[in-house]
Design a protein around this nucleic acid. Structure first.
Length: 461
DNA sequence: CGGCCTTTGAAGGTA
DNA sequence: TACCTTCAAAGGCCG
């Protein structure tokens, strides 16, 4: 993965990113230079575009809105909420970042901006992550049904937010319609730091704060009304959930999901995510770098908005099934346990995917006899051997789809049966229809299935 | 109704 | 330092 460490800035990614990209060459130096200079170029070019005579109307509106927000915030600042500066944004180009993010949808004739030059921009039908306004995929107003739309921010986090730099408001997305269209019914939001006493003039909450389910305030927003906050206050106010900022892959998924759905006529997220995972690996470093940069900005912004927040805060809010760690197969003391141990750090290209992600090794913990390595878009194995298998035939049942597989590496073309869990039967359907030509097969990692479990790898759609 | 599935990355905890 | 765990999004599925 790209290391977008730009001169003095904090890490853009975890060590995982470094690991993944090590196998792609030694262009790190070049990569490192991407963020600062290229971002600056991007920004200036976008600004120039916006100032050009041919600037689309929407872009001008964006600027107008940003100006309004700047003025609004200045007013708030004068009201005594100004505490500290955020030097990290000063002169870093970050202040213009929203421009970077927001310009895309508004650029003329749907062309993609530099930022997403090679990444198709889709029009998701659903909502936008609280901070994912940074992502330039939507030229629609926010969906009023977005689960991210917070309803009761006013009484919650927003009121406790530290004062903000004038840069911040510009980070937020501008509806295509401009200021005049900003309304709660659109799910538009207000920077928490602009709230002052907790309620912004627009009364629109910040989407990073997600109310708990059953919040009637949401319905208010859905109906374009302001929420009834006062009855709420009488009760014990539930703490809103501040979501984690999206990482690069999540941003990528949000942007590409609709496209994959359209292409593959799939709806099941599990299957779609598998495809997206493949495509993610197939992305060039430059393409991935865009998303890492977006994610970095999101994290920065998130830290600014919620300084005391920790991802740990949300632990336990999702009920997780008891993990299969009880059945940890690491009870094989003699053999190499992990790709890491077997290949070492300097042969990370030979690591399986989970090892690269510092997760449980699927290759040597579970034995080496299984077929199945994900396959990149060019058909080569991403995770190194073993070879992918070709799906010859799939027969769906209620619970599983049984597929006959053959491995190219097996010259005898002996067939073996794998079983697709019901959750990915849709994949097998694609196989049978010829949309998918290759799949990989992993042996069952739990005792509950004696059959092999197919983890389909999408080669062509 | 709520957890599961499935993906990658980030972050925090543990050994 | 290495490893592990949880959560972030999404929506169909299932108990």
């Amino acid at each position: 993965m790209p290391q977008l460490r730009g001169g003095g800035e904090e890490d853009l990614g975890a060590s995982d990113e470094l690991i993944s990209f090590k196998d792609e060459g030694e262009e790190k130096v070049q990569e490192n230079s991407f963020t600062e200079r290229d971002l600056a170029d991007l920004k200036s070019s976008l600004v120039n575009e916006s100032e050009a005579p041919a600037m689309p109307e929407a872009v001008r509106r964006v600027q107008d809105v940003q100006r309004v927000y700047q003025e609004k915030l200045a007013d708030h600042m004068e009201d005594g909420i100004k505490h500290h500066e955020e030097p990290m944004y000063k002169g870093s180009g970050y202040s213009s970042y929203p421009f970077l993010m927001l310009s895309d949808p508004y650029l003329s004739n749907g062309s993609m901006s530099t930022l997403s030059s090679k990444v198709p921009v889709v029009q998701p039908s659903h909502g936008v992550h609280p901070l994912t306004p940074l992502i330039p995929y939507n030229n629609e107003p926010f969906s009023s049904h977005s689960p991210h739309l917070p309803a009761d921010l006013n009484q919650k986090q927003g009121a406790h937010r530290p004062p903000q730099t004038p840069d911040i408001p510009a980070f937020y997305p501008i509806p295509p319609g401009g200021v005049g269209q900003i309304s709660p019914s659109m799910g538009w939001f207000t920077h928490p730091l602009m709230l002052g006493s907790g309620v912004h003039t627009t009364g629109i909450p910040h989407p990073a704060i997600v109310p708990h389910s059953g919040n009637k305030d949401m319905e208010c927003y859905d109906r374009g009304m302001k929420p009834h906050l006062e009855p709420k206050r009488e009760k014990e106010p539930k703490k809103p959930t501040i979501k984690k900022p999206l990482n690069a892959f999540m941003l990528y998924m949000k942007e590409m999901r609709a496209k994959v759905i359209a292409e593959c006529t799939l709806k099941e997220s599990a299957a779609i995510n598998q495809i997206l995972g493949r495509r993610w690996h197939a992305l060039s470093r430059e393409e991935q770098a865009k998303y890492y940069e977006l994610a970095r900005k999101e994290r920065q912004l998130h830290m600014q908005l919620y300084p005391g927040w920790s991802a740990r805060d949300n632990y336990g809010k999702k009920k997780r099934r008891s993990r299969e760690k009880h059945q940890d197969s690491s009870s094989d003391p003699g053999s190499p346990k992990k790709c890491r141990a077997r290949f070492g750090l300097n042969q990370q290209t030979d690591w399986c995917g989970p090892c690269r992600r510092k997760k449980k090794c699927i290759r040597y913990l579970q034995g080496e006899g299984h077929c199945g390595s994900p396959v990149s878009s060019d058909g080569s194995a991403v995770d190194s051997p073993p070879s992918p298998v070709t799906v010859l035939q799939c027969v769906s049942s209620s619970a599983y789809s049984s597929c006959k597989l053959t491995s190219p590496a097996d010259s005898a073309q002996s067939e073996q049966s794998c079983f697709l869990p019901a959750s990915i039967k849709a994949i097998s359907a694609l196989v049978t229809t010829g949309h998918i030509t290759t799949a990989s097969c992993h042996p069952s990692d739990s005792s509950e299935e004696s059959t092999a479990r197919v983890s389909p790898t999408i080669v062509a759609t």
